[in-house]
């Protein structure tokens, strides 16, 4: 075991896979010699060679198109899109090609690619470095969408994603790269040092896709979250005095519906939290699933806490960002109803 932050854990996952499988290669904007704007690929080119980890043109569509061609050939490319905000030029490739290649070719070709991309807010990145586009991938059948919330899971989920034979969108909550941010931006920030999930094995291990983690057990209300919101929700729960059960989905496709249903059936209450804007967000799907499967066990209306339906604003970072106060208010509404 070693102490790692999420950047180091992701780097370790890539290092392990480059060493284990000659068909794994990495490319993306600034990922080669420089090691990526967030340093996730730091040192990998030097250690594994120029053709294993190299720079790509500023062309998200081109990066994903070539990755799909490589995947069809039999490689397992791990392209990086520098910010999830920039992934949309590649959306056609992901939706019309990667997600459907296996289906439409009768299984002759597939695209076993893992698209890594930092996402989410809380870093004063404004509209173009803060968005959470998970719902637009979750809606596309044929794609898997994975979102870790800590270093241990990040490494195990990334290895599982690379080894997965289906295309995976791997969204990295960049606000969690260096520490478990609980939304209290005005307080002393914590790092991963001393956090249990900052203890990361150095070798190969996987965290299975489609298996949620129960971060906190509780009997009063189920809180469903992923990414940065796991830590914000945990902080809010601890301050609220409410005995909430917190589920970290870890992947939204495949979705661990059994864990969600089992928990809500116990608690009878449900609060869904995500950073992305609310309307049409993944919380709507979660809410519908809980309603369909747990309606007669529900004691109160399902609550959704999400980003406002505005573009991600710069000056209003902490007015927009889902913080502990909004989660606490939702917990109280769920309990009072």
């Amino acid at each position: 075991m070693a102490q790692m932050n999420m950047i180091q854990a992701l780097n370790s996952a890539l290092d392990v896979m480059l060493a284990n499988d000659p068909n794994v290669l990495i490319f993306g904007e600034d990922v080669g010699y420089f090691g990526g704007v967030f340093r996730v690929t730091d040192g990998l080119q030097k250690k594994h060679g120029l053709t294993r980890c190299f720079d790509a043109p500023i062309s998200e569509g081109g990066i994903i198109a070539t990755a799909i061609g490589m995947g069809a050939y039999g490689l397992r490319p791990v392209p990086e899109i520098q910010f999830a905000d920039y992934i949309l030029p590649a959306y056609d490739q992901l939706v019309s090609e990667a997600a459907r290649l296996r289906y439409r070719s009768g299984g002759e070709f597939s695209a076993p690619i893992t698209v890594r991309s930092p996402y989410g807010g809380g870093i004063f990145g404004g509209q173009t470095h803060s968005q959470s586009p998970e719902a637009v991938f979750a809606h596309i059948t044929g794609l898997k969408t994975v979102i870790p919330s800590n270093p241990y899971d990040a490494k195990g989920l990334l290895i599982a994603s690379i080894e997965c034979d289906d295309p995976v969108i791997f969204l990295e909550p960049k606000r969690l790269y260096n520490g478990p941010f609980d939304g209290r931006h005005d307080r002393q920030l914590r790092t991963w040092a001393g956090h249990a999930a900052g203890e990361v094995p150095e070798g190969h291990y996987t965290v299975p896709l489609g298996k949620a983690a129960t971060v906190r057990e509780g009997k009063d209300v189920t809180v469903i979250a992923y990414g940065t919101m796991v830590h914000v929700a945990l902080g809010a729960i601890e301050e609220s005095g409410i005995d909430a059960e917190l589920i970290d989905l870890r992947s939204i496709v495949p979705l661990d519906i059994d864990a969600i249903v089992a928990s809500v059936e116990r608690t009878g209450r449900c609060v869904i939290v995500h950073e992305a804007s609310r309307f049409g967000g993944f919380g709507g799907e979660l809410s519908a699933l809980v309603q369909e499967r747990c309606f007669y066990r529900l004691k109160s209306p399902i609550e959704r806490v999400a980003g406002w339906d505005t573009p991600y604003p710069h000056a209003f970072e902490w007015d927009y960002f889902v913080g502990p106060a909004r989660i606490a208010a939702a917990l109280n509404r769920a309990m009072e109803a």
């Binding site: 569509g61 081109g62 198109a65 070539t66 990755a67 799909i68 061609g69 490589m70 995947g71 069809a72 050939y73 039999g74 490689l75 490319p77 056609d92 490739q93 019309s96 090609e97 459907r100 290649l101 439409r104 070719s105 002759e108 070709f109």
Partner: peptide
């Protein structure tokens, strides 16, 4: 594998060749 979306496999050819 063909698709009705024109053009979207042009880059796959390049990726295949790179592989």
């Amino acid at each position: 594998s063909l698709s009705g979306n024109v053009g979207s496999r042009f880059g796959h050819a390049v990726g295949w060749a790179m592989a």
